[in-house]
Design a protein around this nucleic acid. Structure first.
Length: 113
DNA sequence: ATAGTGACTGTCT
DNA sequence: GAGACAGCCACTA
């Protein structure tokens, strides 16, 4: 494991941790923010490791169209949806309703500089 | 070392 | 507008 990969993980966690309650973002958005726009899959892979970290709301990270593609990685089949609904996000058929409305853009929010 | 797989996305048909 | 294809890169067998 290269040190850079570890740094990559750290960055992903750092961004994911800052997602406000009731907001969601996409793997691609995080990937782009980290400068690896074409490696959105790596973000999802990093999320897999985030399972050990309670501070990381992995359920707030979905694919670009607001589809809960990673719900199978949670304990329960509908745990991810439950968590989102608990934060006021409506989910129908594994898809977030009004996704754009709840979307949290790292560039817009963190864009500091 | 090769090949298959996947928490994705953009482009082409 | 939906489906197919291709990059992407780390992991596993």
């Amino acid at each position: 494991m290269k040190p850079e990969n570890k740094n990559f993980f750290q960055k992903v966690y750092e961004v994911a941790r800052q997602i406000p309650e009731g907001r969601v973002t996409s793997y691609g958005a995080i990937a782009k923010y980290l400068g690896v726009a074409r490696s959105a899959r790596m973000v999802g892979w990093a999320m897999n490791g985030a399972h050990s970290m309670p501070e990381i709301p992995a359920h707030r990270v979905v694919n670009k169209i607001g589809l809960l593609t990673g719900k199978h990685h949670f304990d329960g089949t509908n745990l991810m949806q439950q968590l989102l609904e608990n934060e006021g996000i409506k989910v129908v058929d594994n898809q977030i309703v009004d996704f754009e409305k709840h979307f949290w853009d790292p560039f817009k929010e963190l864009h500091d500089h």
